[in-house]
Simulated assay, not measured.
Amino acid sequence: MRLLFLAVLRRHTGNAVTAERVRDHLEAAGHVCILKDASDLENSSEIAKLIEAESLEAALALHLYRGGRLLRGHGIPFGIIFGGTDLNEDVNHGEKKEVMGKVLEEARFAVAFTESMKEMAQTQWVDPVFTREVGARVKRAAGVRLIREMPQGDLHAALKNCFAVVNSSVSEGMSAAILEAMDLEVPVLARNIPGNAAVVKHEVTGLLFSDPQEFVQLAKRLVSDPALEREIVANGREYVRARHSWQAERCTYQNLIRTLEGSIQD
């Protein structure tokens, strides 16, 4: 495959060294990798001419803004390698952050060198299109606030001060938020989907709703019925401690790993 690789190639910099190393990896696999300095290619037309002249089939960019923005809209698949400046500096500039989000929408993959870089990227971008839609709707909704991610301890403290936790997901495997709320003795209202219904028994460990109207009805009922609230809280706490115990989970995984050890010995 013939690849275009964009990076900022100032001599003796970390970016230049990384780009050369990655190119060596790709060429060792039999690909043709044309490495270009992104600083020398400042507009889309230059990239288009290069793609056509070199018969390039795909592309890679080191640095989401400096390199990635030049690859948008050319009709060839591309991937991105995060650079430190992307996540430490450029995300603080509104226009650059918006451009980087659009790059990620088109990219086929993104590479982060460390777990902390991956977590920072996920915090800034999980799903850019959906994030923008949610943000726009929240701005139009009276009495609704959008709060960014927070450390688990802070989140739990906030949950304890809430009247209830609502899970409105349309798809769930097993909602950790629901289990955390039950363990913290906070009532749960959850959309009636299979993943939620597997852990929330209606009117026993929580309340399940199927549409906005039913949600409003159940929320009003919960507010006006302290006995129901107390029963749901008690049952939810007992369910979590009986069925999702941290100690039991630890033992289960340890036992499962022992079966793998036995297979190796056999």
Rank of each mutant, 00 (worst) to 15 (best):
R2E: 05
R2I: 03
L4C: 01
A7I: 07
R21Q: 14
V22I: 12
V22K: 04
A29T: 12
V32C: 12
L35D: 01
D40Q: 14
E42N: 14
E42P: 03
N43H: 14
S44D: 14
E46M: 13
E46H: 11
I47H: 10
L50A: 04
E54Q: 11
E54A: 01
L56I: 15
E57L: 04
E57P: 03
L62I: 06
H63V: 06
L64M: 11
G67Q: 03
L71D: 02
L71H: 01
L71K: 01
G75P: 01
P77T: 02
P77N: 04
G79Y: 05
L87K: 03
V91S: 02
K96H: 11
M100L: 01
K102M: 10
K102R: 15
E105G: 04
R108W: 07
A110P: 00
M117S: 09
M120T: 14
A121N: 07
V129S: 12
F130A: 15
T131Y: 08
R137Q: 12
K139I: 08
R140P: 05
A142D: 14
L146K: 08
I147W: 05
I147P: 07
R148D: 15
P151K: 06
Q152F: 09
H156Q: 13
A157R: 14
N161K: 15
C162A: 12
N167C: 09
S169E: 07
S171I: 13
E172R: 06
E172G: 05
M174E: 13
E180W: 01
D183H: 12
A190Y: 06
A190Q: 06
N192Q: 11
N192T: 04
P194T: 09
A197K: 09
K201D: 14
H202F: 01
V204I: 15
D211A: 08
E214W: 00
L218V: 01
S224V: 06
L228C: 06
E231S: 15
A234D: 03
G236N: 02
G236P: 03
R237S: 14
Y239P: 03
R241Y: 07
S245F: 04
W246L: 12
W246Q: 13
A248N: 12
R250E: 10
C251G: 10
Q254W: 08
L256Q: 13
L256S: 09
R258L: 10
L260W: 15
E261V: 10
I264E: 10
Q265M: 09
D266E: 12
